[in-house]
Amino acid sequence: MKKNVMVLVFLCAIFFSAKAQEISNNAIGVRISEGFSGVAPEISYQKKVRTNKRLELNLKLQNSINDLEFVGLYEWVWNIKNNFNWYAGPGIGFRDFSRFPIFLTGVIGVEYNFTSPLLLSIDYRPETNRSNLLNANLGFSLKYQF
């Protein structure tokens, strides 16, 4: 009996560690980031494209409907250790309030994949601003994976 319990614990440990190295098919949540007008929340959605690649879509509303920002990112995800991953990739965005509404962006970040369906991450996303100079955008995310 004791041997069976040890085997069961071992198999569960393998299952959970193997799952931590995969990215989920979908994740939705909130990203809190700095913007042109200060801190602003974003609705964030991630969709798995391949084994270690995903598409991320973010929608930010800063002050009013005129300050709408939409960003699409293509990300590569690599496992660091256990439940930690890092990710990076290029992107493109659209700002409703800008003279040049389309801008280029990218992302680099680190995430922690809990054994529950929660995903916590911090990332850096440089964006071209209204003057086509780089704007630093640091964000924290909490997402639900399904």
Rank of each mutant, 00 (worst) to 15 (best):
L59S: 06
D96S: 14
G72S: 10
D67R: 02
E22M: 07
Q62E: 15
N113P: 10
N82Q: 15
A88E: 05
V107Q: 12
L61C: 02
F97I: 00
L68R: 01
N63Y: 09
T128A: 09
Q46L: 00
G91S: 01
E22A: 12
Y45I: 15
L11I: 12
F70A: 10
W76C: 07
A20Q: 09
W86H: 09
T105H: 01
N26Y: 07
G109N: 05
G91F: 01
L118P: 04
N52P: 00
V71R: 08
D67W: 01
L59K: 05
L11P: 09
F97P: 00
S33D: 02
S33K: 10
R99H: 02
T105V: 03
S33I: 05
W76D: 07
G91I: 04
I80R: 11
Q62R: 15
Y112M: 01
N113D: 13
G38I: 10
N83V: 09
R31A: 12
I23N: 00
F36T: 13
Y124G: 08
A18N: 10
L59I: 14
Y124T: 11
E22N: 10
D123C: 10
E75S: 10
A20F: 02
Y45C: 02
S44E: 05
V30I: 14
R99M: 09
G106C: 10
E42R: 04
S44M: 09
E56I: 06
F94N: 00
E34N: 15
I28D: 08
L57H: 04
L59F: 13
E75V: 07
Y124R: 04
A88L: 13
Y112E: 04
T105L: 11
P126W: 09
F97Q: 04
S98R: 13
E69F: 03
I122H: 01
V30H: 07
L68T: 04
N58T: 11
L118E: 01
L57Y: 06
I122F: 11
N66L: 07
D96E: 14
V49W: 02
F84W: 14
V30N: 06
I92N: 05
Y112K: 06
Q21D: 12
S44D: 01
G93Q: 01
P126S: 06
S121A: 12
F97K: 09
T51N: 14
Y112L: 08
P126Q: 07
F70S: 02
W86R: 05
L55T: 08
N63K: 15
V107W: 03
